[in-house]
């Protein structure tokens, strides 16, 4: 297999396999969760479920003062790498082209050096998160294999993408192929791990808000 064969495979059948597993995995899990249903609440509703649910989706994005004080490092680095991921995935011109090719919609990109800077910041914050995970005794105790796997498949596309853009070490087709492959691994691992939070997060927040709304209390 030549490096161009490899590149063509990850751009073709490899991407197809990853898409099938990603889409099927995510949808089946979401359907299962929604269809599980809840017992009918026989108590009288004291407020709106919907408005409280929707509000909570937004308000939970802002950390509360006491929890921010308690876990400043986790929250700050968490925010940095999530914003960095968003910028590198959705505001880099070649990625927008990929999305346009699949979904049909596109938007303006950020200048490449800006995206590059965001990628570096994300990589640094993810490394800091790993160091923190091992240096903090409680976090270390709670860490299992899945946590490390999820960390690895998240940082891998960032690192391989950075290397591919700057063309360090190997030849360009190999570097680009490895980058695309790392994304495919992320897509395959996604539905079966806590990475699913990217979708379930909103459902969970809405539900928390909805329970409070029904009871007429602040969420």
């Amino acid at each position: 297999m030549t490096e161009i064969d490899f590149l063509n495979w990850v751009r073709g059948p490899g991407f197809q396999i990853a898409t099938i597993i990603f889409v099927a995995g995510v949808l089946i899990r979401i359907f299962e969760i929604i269809l599980l249903g809840r017992k009918a609440n026989l108590a009288e509703a004291k407020g709106s479920e919907m408005s409280s649910g929707l509000r909570t989706i937004v308000t939970r994005s802002v950390p509360q003062a006491d929890s921010f004080k308690r876990s400043t490092f986790t929250i700050v680095t968490g925010y940095i790498f999530h914003i960095g991921l968003f910028v590198t995935i959705f505001l880099y011109a070649p990625h927008i082209l990929l999305i346009k090719d699949i979904v049909g919609i596109s938007w303006p990109a950020l200048p490449t050096p800006v995206v590059d800077a965001f990628a570096v910041i994300s990589i640094i914050s993810l490394l800091a998160i790993l160091i923190h995970r091992f240096s903090n005794k409680v976090l270390h105790y709670l860490t299992n294999f899945e946590d490390l796997l999820v960390w690895f498949v998240t940082i891998a596309p960032l690192v391989t993408g950075y290397i591919a853009f700057h063309r360090i070490g190997f030849t360009a087709p190999t570097l680009l192929g490895i980058h695309i492959l790392s994304v495919e691994i992320l897509m395959i691992v996604f539905p079966f791990t806590k990475l699913m939070h990217a979708f379930t997060l909103f459902m969970a927040r809405w539900y928390n808000g909805a329970i409070s709304g029904y009871r007429g209390v602040e969420s």
Binding site: R11, P13, Q16, P94, H95, L97, I102, V103
Partner: peptide, 13 residues
């Protein structure tokens, strides 16, 4: 473009 998949991913999805 090089960043686009070579197969019809829309259909697959």
């Amino acid at each position: 473009a090089l960043s686009m998949p070579t197969e019809n991913i829309t259909q697959t999805a």
